[in-house]
Write a protein that binds this DNA or RNA. Structure first.
Lengths: 184, 184
DNA sequence: TTCCGTTGTGACACCCGGTGCCATAACGTG
DNA sequence: CACGTTATGGCACCGGGTGTCACAACGGAA
């Protein structure tokens, strides 16, 4: 009764009930039946509880970028990779949604998300380097566009839970990814 | 000898010398000749020292957006407002550059910047709402594009100090701001 | 001058997130 | 059973941040 995921599940429930800031690590540890010290062995910081699945998502994003389809434009590939990486099975959707809610309700968590998602940016930058473009700033712009679109889509999602996250991600990326620029 | 700007100047010097994390608030307070408690009356958090001028920059951004020129496209207006807001007189350039360096060297500071720049995003979103566009996600996308471009330009700037921040901002915004979409 | 209210400052205690260190319990292996 | 490894817990500590109180500095009014 003490895998990282189980502790995270307990923690997230309390966060939603009582609020992130109003919940101390001791509270979570007590509720999960572990000691405070053990909590910090599972998660480097309190906010990291909300990002248990982050490594898996990053890996899916990386795999999605690598899995090219013939005739697929770089934009289409990035969009597909992001959407696939953030697709959740139905039973995880409410978890993902609660996580997004806490994101935008608690500035500290939102700030932490940026750190966690730096890996996304890096992968996107490396991918964009393979695309010929007139402006040398292009790869960095793609990296930040991926991050911004992910954040923006989640932000909109928290305010319109009925809409599909995947659709929102695709539309945001379509708005934010730089245009092609063989000559710029 | 204890205005907020004077304390900030002392703090920034120590941060650059010794590093942000390796410098405690007590160190800064002692160096500035004030007590720890007084420091926290000047600045809500340690990281806020780096953002003394933030309110002024936000105000300049707001004013820049409001000051429309006849025949100016919304994109041109946003670009001009951002560039003007982040233009520094020569004697402040090195301060701005050091601040940018600390940004990207210290995750905690980078995280804090996101919080501070939420005001920018909000202003940009409101401005974008006045622009007709087929996709209702457009205003939010503009807001995040402004933020992403600012971050990206600063990131590139820290690695290429010789280039002009204003030029980098304009180019990044050109890459990241969504295209027009009267029909989308 | 004295009295008084306001404001800025400092000192102290406290909470909480995070870490290093050490003791010990749990476990598989010989 | 004895052993080494690993997971866990307890403890002390650091640093950021806050609430509370005491006191000094200052200016105005009598």
């Amino acid at each position: 009764m003490s895998s990282a995921h189980e502790v995270a599940a307990v923690a997230q429930r309390i966060f939603v009930e009582r609020g992130f800031d109003a919940t101390s690590v001791d509270d979570v540890a007590a509720a999960a039946g572990i000691s405070r010290r053990t909590f910090f062995r599972y998660f480097p910081t309190k906010a990291d509880v909300l990002f248990v699945d982050s490594p898996r998502e990053v890996e899916r994003f990386r795999a999605g970028l690598a899995a090219g389809r013939t005739g697929e434009s770089w934009r289409a590939r990035v969009v597909r990779a992001v959407v696939e990486a953030l697709e959740f099975p139905p039973e995880e959707r409410s978890w993902a949604f609660h996580r997004a809610q806490v994101f935008f309700a608690v500035p500290a968590v939102q700030a932490h998300a940026v750190r966690v998602w730096a890996a996304w940016r890096q992968l996107a930058v490396e991918h964009a380097r393979t695309v010929p473009h007139a402006d040398p700033l292009f790869p960095l712009a793609v990296g930040h566009a991926v991050l911004a679109a992910t954040l923006a889509a989640h932000e909109h999602w928290t305010r319109h839970p009925g809409e599909e996250l995947g659709v929102l991600l695709a539309r945001m990326l379509d708005l934010l990814l730089p245009p092609d620029g063989a000559a710029g």
